[in-house]
Structures are given as C-alpha cells and as structure tokens.
C-alpha cells in the first residue's frame, strides 16, 4: 500500500497545520539543557490524591497496630529500674549462657532435671514484657587506651557533594518553577537567593539571566538595566549576549529610553520579541 497523501497537502487544512506550530512552546531550552546535563530529578506526576491517600492508609495502619499491641500485651505494673544494681554475675568469655546450669553440692550435675534448690547469684531474673530492664553490668577491666577507630568506608564518599548538588538544584528549580508560572516577584527573590547561596554555582549563568528576566517582568526596569549592563561586561556570558541585550532593551522601553533600546537592538537578530520592543517604542512616540 502506497503512502497516503498528508493532510497538510489538503488546501483546506494547509493553513491550519502551518498555524499548529505557532501554538507550540515557548520553552526555555537553555534551562532545560542545564537540568538535563546536571541530572536534576524529574518532577513526579502531578497526582493529587496519591500522597494524601498513602498518608491516610499508613496513618490508619499505624493506629490499628498500636491498638492491637495495646490489647495483646499484658498490662502489669511497670517496675521501675532498680536504683542500686545487685552484684552482677561475672561471665567469662566463652561461657555458655543457655541453659544455665548451676553446680550445687550433693546434686548430680549430670541430671538433666533442673535442681529444686534456689539458684544462687548467677540466676537471671525473668524479664517481664512491658517492664524496663536495668542494663546488664559490664565487668570493668583496666584496658589500655585504644586509639579512635578509623571511620568505616561504606562506599558513600560521594554523599556530601551529591547532597550539595541536590540542594543547589532544588534552589534553582524553585526559582525556575516560579518563573515558569509567571510569579515574577517570587522568581526574582528565589533567583537572588540562589545566587547568594551558591556564588559559584553550576547554574550561576542561567540564574543571572533568570534574575534579569524576572526583574524586567516584575516592574524593576532600573535594576534590570544596571544588571544587564554588568552581565554584558562579563566575558563568561558572551554567548548569551543577545538574550541579555534583548532583556536590556525591554527594560529601557519601560524606562522611556526608546532611543537607547533601539540602539541596543541593532545587534540583535529579528524575532517576535524584537518586533514587540520596536512596536512599543513606536507607540510611545
């Protein structure tokens, strides 16, 4: 079977399929690239009832288990721990603890039946459920000073750096989420907080651009203009110069400095946002 003709070749639908592309995006590819390369965790499915359900079920289970334990366990009086510890039996290393066999004069020790005589000191008092048992005394032996043991290697050497990276990405993602939801004031504060907390962070460049965008969109054109000037002088941000110029032009329009804005845009490629700035300047004139 031959390939059927595509719908976009239909004269009635051609325009609609061309316009379909206009409804895509926009997306912040640079920020997404940073997230992908940094390996930041993918947000979970926004499933509303899932967590409350899990919390409810686990809470109910815990309550039922508690009630069941309370009903099953004997409710005898709680014996407080003895204030003075009786003389403890001295156990030698290697001595079997169970069964406790005590040598009593006159009684055949080979008899498997426990003697009727009360056992002397080494008898261990039976432990009652629900009571607090005094800690078993330890024979104090003078031992030479032992040096501190070396830390055990669990193969978790990367724990601290990973935790740092995780914390940094969480800070950045909080700012990014606010910006994505157009909560510009919050985004501005979160980007500033990220830059303050992580002055040499891995996403510093992206955060600075994010802060600039948030300043422009949260009606702080003066601060945005000065930040843009500073960023344009930073050689590390040379490859993002066009984005910075565009944001600076938008800030200059807000400051009623359209001539400066148009001059800034001379080196910027034509795009919808550039046209928007030009149109805004035309309207102001």
């Amino acid at each position: 079977m031959n390939e059927p003709r595509r719908l976009r070749e239909d004269p009635e639908l051609r325009q609609a399929f061309e316009d379909e592309r206009l409804a895509l995006g926009p997306h912040d590819l640079a920020a997404l690239r940073a997230r992908v390369v940094a390996g930041s965790p993918v947000p979970a499915t926004p499933s509303g009832p899932r967590w409350p359900t899990l919390v409810g079920i686990s809470g109910l289970t815990a309550a039922l288990v508690s009630v069941a334990l309370w009903a099953i366990l004997p409710s005898g009086p709680v014996i407080p721990p003895p204030q003075s510890t009786p003389a403890p039996p001295v156990l030698l290393v290697g001595e079997p603890r169970m069964p406790t066999r005590v040598a009593v004069p006159g009684v055949d020790t080979e008899d498997p039946v426990e003697p009727d005589l009360p056992a002397p000191a080494p008898v261990v008092a039976p432990v009652e459920v629900g009571t607090v048992q005094a800690p078993e005394p330890v024979e104090t032996v003078e031992t030479p000073a032992v040096p501190e043991p070396a830390p055990v290697d669990h193969g978790l050497r990367m724990t601290a750096p990973r935790a740092d990276l995780q914390a940094e990405l969480e800070d950045y993602n909080r700012a990014l989420d606010a910006a994505s939801a157009s909560r510009w004031s919050e985004a501005r504060e979160r980007y500033a907080a990220y830059l303050e907390a992580w002055p040499s962070g891995r996403l510093r460049d992206e955060a600075q651009l994010g802060l600039l965008g948030a300043l422009v969109r949260s009606d702080r054109p003066g601060e945005a203009e000065s930040l843009a000037t500073r960023l344009l002088a930073d050689p590390a941000l040379a490859r993002r110069a066009e984005d910075i110029r565009l944001l600076r032009a938008e800030a200059l329009v807000e400051l009623d400095r359209c001539d400066d804005a148009l001059a800034v845009l001379e080196d910027v490629r034509r795009s919808a946002r550039v046209t928007a700035v030009r149109n805004a300047c035309r309207r102001k004139r």
Binding site: A16, D19, N279
Partner: peptide, 11 residues
C-alpha cells in the same frame, strides 16, 4: 507579539 490572534487560535 506579531503572531496574529486568529492564526494562533487556529493552531
């Protein structure tokens, strides 16, 4: 800004 509303709505 230069995307006409009509075309956007069609998409």
């Amino acid at each position: 800004a230069d995307v006409s509303l009509e075309r956007y709505q069609r998409g």
